[in-house]
Simulated scan of single mutants.
Amino acid sequence: MSAYVIRSGDRAAFIAGLRELADFLTTNPGVLVPRNPSFGVLIDASDPAARREGLEFAAAPLGVPVEDLGEGYYDARRSFGPIAYSFIAIPPEERQ
């Protein structure tokens, strides 16, 4: 068993929801959209090495590097136009 936990959701439901949102926004041009939207998946682990390992595992399919933000925080993100898709590892004490 790995020393990290990835907080992921229902993949099919997420993709269907994105398509539904895109269709809704297309047919309702009066609805405002966010300037810098983002989606994030959290990686939980009690120690920095496990957080980084979990983030590297999750970020590999995105083809982006893991960035050490310091103080136990790690991030990996890929942009699709103005939308960011990211994996985030936060120290345990900050999640409470």
Rank of each mutant, 00 (worst) to 15 (best):
R78E: 08
E53L: 03
A16P: 03
G30R: 10
P91L: 05
F14W: 13
A49P: 00
P82M: 09
V31Y: 08
S38D: 09
Y73A: 00
I83S: 10
G63D: 06
F39Y: 08
R19T: 11
G72D: 01
E53A: 15
R35M: 10
A76E: 04
I15G: 08
R51D: 01
G40P: 00
L32P: 11
I83V: 15
I88W: 11
A16E: 15
D44N: 07
A22Y: 14
D75W: 09
A89I: 02
N28F: 09
T26G: 11
V66G: 00
S86K: 12
V41F: 06
V31Q: 15
S86R: 13
A76H: 02
A50E: 08
S46M: 07
F39C: 07
L42R: 08
P91K: 11
V66N: 01
A76G: 05
S86Y: 03
E93V: 08
F14G: 06
V41D: 05
S38L: 11
G70P: 06
N28W: 13
N36S: 07
D44R: 10
S79E: 15
G81T: 07
G72E: 00
A58G: 06
L69A: 05
G81C: 09
P92G: 02
A59E: 00
G30K: 09
F80M: 11
A60V: 04
S46K: 09
P48C: 04
P65I: 04
L18W: 13
E67G: 02
I15C: 10
S79H: 15
G63L: 07
Y85G: 07
E67N: 09
A76K: 05
E93D: 11
P92W: 03
G54C: 03
F87Q: 05
Y85S: 09
E53W: 01
F80P: 03
R35C: 05
V33M: 14
P48T: 01
A22G: 10
I90H: 02
P37H: 10
I43S: 07
Y73T: 01
T27W: 14
D75K: 06
A60F: 05
G81N: 10
V64Y: 00
G17C: 09
V41P: 04
F24N: 11
R77E: 08
D23L: 07
D23E: 13
Y74C: 02
A16W: 04
L18Q: 15
A84G: 03
Y85M: 12
P61Y: 11
L55T: 00
A89N: 00
E56M: 04
S79A: 13
I83Q: 13
A58V: 07
P34I: 02
A49F: 06
L21R: 15
V66E: 01
P82Y: 10
